[in-house]
Design a protein around this nucleic acid. Structure first.
Ligand SMILES: [Zn+2]
Ligand SMILES: [Zn+2]
Ligand SMILES: [Zn+2]
Ligand SMILES: [Zn+2]
Lengths: 141, 141
DNA sequence: TCGCAAGTGAGAATGGTTCTCATCTTACAT
DNA sequence: ATGTAAGATGAGAACCATTCTCACTTGCGA
């Protein structure tokens, strides 16, 4: 249950937090902005203050429940951290987001950091391109 | 000369643009924020409006003279686009930035995009870690 | 040298995010 | 169950990097 998840990371179980977690699980889009969370909760009658949404997301991130991504030209998006690590490829025309994991790249990153004498803590990799989805191609030609 | 560079990309040669380009070339830090450019020009008696700095940077970027990077938790930084493409590794303690190019990673990116049916246009890769610089280690232990 | 399209700068506006603070809740002990 | 203290909430203000506005200035081809 979601209550467990909150307790496990040392957060009090509150209605706003449960609603936000629940929305992250059930939202159609996996990568979602704070604004969207705020708006969707409002529309479904579960009004939560925007400040609370931001606060909860920051806490969830600190607790490792979610991750945050900043795709170029867009606002910050959040996603539930379930399953293994992955990076993203984003269509610059339609905004479609796909996920991938590439062991070759992950390994090289570690080697590169090592060569510079860095202890690798994190990385951000996003590919940008134009997708071949029919709904995307249809828009611009 | 810098005037050439501006003319070559179809921009009028103006004093503000020349000063900003010049600063980008001579600044100690290669990766620099708009604010810093604004402040450093001001300090050296070459006051330029902040809006002009942002405008010029946007035009330089569109013209391919500079690139823009958004390292996590920091403001946007700009750097002169001279020499081959590279990505970055950033120390999360002291902010030190190093550059690298890795053919293996670059090639894999292209393959991944292809597999998703995307035409790769761009990518953003930044590694975050803790460096072993003495000035860095000294700070936190 | 002129004329005007283009550029500039001060300050206002924007917009995403964070902060403030008075008011609620949760979690825990009685 | 009830009291209570620590923590959470929400409305709106504040923040801050960036962009916009607009009256004035400048680069540059004719
Ligand atoms: Zn994802
Ligand atoms: Zn697309
Ligand atoms: Zn660089
Ligand atoms: Zn360091």
């Amino acid at each position: 249950m979601e209550s467990e998840e909150l307790r496990n990371v040392g957060l009090k179980v509150t209605t706003p937090r449960l609603k936000i977690l629940g929305l992250l699980e059930n939202a159609k889009a996996k990568h979602i902005t704070a604004e969207t969370i705020y708006r969707q909760l409002g529309e479904s009658g579960e009004a939560i203050g925007l400040a609370t949404v931001y606060r909860a997301l920051a806490q969830f991130e600190a607790a490792g429940l979610i991750t945050r991504h900043q795709f170029e030209g867009g606002q910050t998006v959040f996603e539930l951290e379930r399953g293994p690590h992955h990076d993203h490829i984003v269509c610059v025309r339609c905004g479609r987001v796909e996920e991938f994991y590439d062991k070759v790249i992950e390994d090289r990153q570690r080697e590169i950091a090592e060569n510079f004498g860095f202890t690798l803590k994190d990385h951000a990799l996003t590919l940008y391109g134009e997708c071949n989805d029919e709904n995307c191609l249809g828009r611009t030609g």
